[in-house]
């Protein structure tokens, strides 16, 4: 009986361990906007026209075909933000994600985590902590070619000033 009670408590109170769990936990909360794109939806995108990232046309069909999921959560409630930060920290530690970049600029802290090898990125997570203005969590999962992903992001970064 005691073991069963402990198992139930673990189920209910456990920290979210994956991007999917974080999305499921917070997407319906107040002051949270959330987006999810599934593997099936990425497949439906099919043969895409050139996608304009920044001001240049970039063909992202190869990258899109390698994506399995995208989660975006934007939160403005302080209490929810605190919980979400704890869950994201737990996620990055448990899954041993590598901190690729951390930047602090005008009160906003940006962190980027990845998981994969030299050629492939299996998980890409970006968090943007803007203090009072909110907290954003972005997760991309799949088998993305590292060079393709870096190229797209670099183009987007260069052309958005």
């Amino acid at each position: 009986m005691a073991i069963a009670a402990v198992m139930l408590l673990l189920t209910v109170g456990a920290n979210a361990q994956t991007a999917k769990e974080i999305y499921s936990k917070y997407s319906d909360s107040e002051n949270v906007s959330a987006v999810y794109i599934s593997s099936a939806m990425f497949k439906l995108m099919g043969k895409l026209p050139s996608m304009s990232v920044g001001n240049e046309d970039v063909n992202l069909s190869a990258l899109v075909k390698s994506l399995q999921s995208m989660y975006v959560i934007d939160c403005e409630d302080d209490e929810t933000i605190a919980q979400m930060k704890a869950d994201v920290k737990s996620l990055t530690q448990k899954r041993k994600l590598e901190l690729l970049m951390e930047a602090k600029d005008e009160g906003e802290t940006i962190r980027i985590f990845t998981q994969g090898d030299e050629d492939t990125v299996e998980s890409f997570i970006m968090t943007a902590d803007d203090g009072e203005d909110g907290y954003t969590f972005i997760s991309l999962e799949g088998t993305m070619n590292r060079a393709d992903l870096e190229k797209v992001i670099a183009k987007a970064a260069k052309t958005i000033q």
């Binding site: 995208m70 970049m101 943007a128 972005i138 992001i153 987007a156 970064a157 958005i160």
Partner: peptide
């Protein structure tokens, strides 16, 4: 989303 990632980076 990619535009947002680029702008933050």
């Amino acid at each position: 989303t990619f535009n947002l990632i680029g702008s933050k980076m």
